[in-house]
Nucleic acid binder design. Structure first.
Lengths: 209, 209
DNA sequence: ACTGTATTGGCACTCAGTGCCGAAGGGAAG
DNA sequence: CTTCCCTTCGGCACTGAGTGCCAATACAGT
């Protein structure tokens, strides 16, 4: 459903009534309202009305109000999966992961402000923080699958799952710092997070970065 | 509120009407229903009825249906905070964290089955998985505060927050394996998780444990 | 125009969670 | 024992998310 409705170019036949809107349109309208008034002060009715659709239709595009800010996340996962697979096997696992995560989280200059507001919602609003866990699970699976493949072991085992959780933790911590400090570079924060983890495991006392 | 109602011994004066029940009682009743019928098949009305209280009263004891399975979690956090503080400063940070986490997650023999069922709910039911994030945040704060204190830096900074996320990730991954494999030891899984993280950061290819 | 197909959106329903307020208990002072 | 005060209880009504159902709408092809 999602893939079809968002697939605007290269549409083949399309019989039946045309969709009245798109995921992107609703998402954009909703995000604007969330930022203006705050997540809890906006009802699904508000979003539907502002998008010119019925409340019932909203729930055909998004399974819940919480899913709205995530937008096209699943597509990006495929990108990361491919990027990981394309990295040379000679690259140590930790570097492959680090590089893929940095690339995956690179934001084009133009979308910076928008992305910042979106991530502020996702990492600030309790309801969204909680709901995000489900999206993170899919993200972790990409990492775990890659680790499993590289080490020739079951991706559901302790090592791949643990490494996936560690990578996720480093990423979220970096994002939180990025939001807290206007001037910081997300890529640098991610690198520093990996270093802090390495130091913790290596040195008696990690450098206080 | 919670601290008072659960404080059953050493009650001093207690004027006014006696509470009709306790957190523990409702929690136990609810958990039983969840395990029998499944989380989503049990309504708050069901729990209230089974506990012999009104629906409105349920929400005075627990802020939400999701909070029921967590029970006395906050108290355990204080225990971990104290335990961390009691560890000798000569102990490397990673070992202090590892030991505290292992101790914190040690389950008395008798409660093993009950704890297993509780954790299965918490790590399986989507609604609970999501909600747990909020509890985890408090858990992470304990770790971050300790790291900040040990390194003499702001606990809100990148290093303490990252390390806290990493510790949480290792813990959850270990728990998931523990639930998946009846025979596994949670303590061993936690230790192995720390080792896997260390190997990732140290070796070119982690041992596939 | 007619037919088949896909989207839409109204309606009614369940359930979580909240504010309000009177009723139910229980301790202490008279 | 009665009165006062305090606290918990629980009914009622309300908001808002999410779902099942189904008729109405719009478009493509014959």
């Amino acid at each position: 459903m999602q893939e079809l409705a968002d697939n605007e170019g290269a549409r083949v036949v399309r019989i039946g009534r045309q969709p009245a809107t798109t995921h992107a349109e609703i998402s954009h309208t909703g995000l604007r309202l969330f930022i203006e008034r705050g997540f809890d002060q906006v009802t699904v009715d508000d979003i539907a009305a502002a998008s010119g659709i019925g409340r019932r239709t909203f729930f055909r595009y998004f399974p819940s109000k919480n899913d709205l800010p995530w937008g096209q996340f699943d597509d990006m996962l495929d990108g990361m999966r491919e990027h990981l697979a394309s990295l040379p096997r000679s690259l140590p696992l930790r570097d492959a992961l680090r590089i893929a995560i940095v690339v995956f989280n690179h934001i084009p200059e133009g979308e910076l402000q928008y992305h910042r507001e979106r991530m502020t919602l996702l990492l600030t609003v309790p309801s969204l923080v909680a709901h995000s866990t489900i999206r993170y699970a899919a993200w972790r699976q990409v990492i775990a699958d890659f680790v499993g493949e590289r080490l020739g072991i079951d991706p559901a085992g302790l090592t791949p799952q643990t490494i996936a959780f560690v990578c996720l933790g480093v990423s979220i911590a970096a994002y939180e710092q990025w939001l807290a400090h206007e001037d910081a570079s997300l890529s640098d924060l991610l690198d520093e997070g990996f270093l802090a983890t390495r130091d913790l495991m290596l040195l008696d006392e990690p450098r206080p970065a």
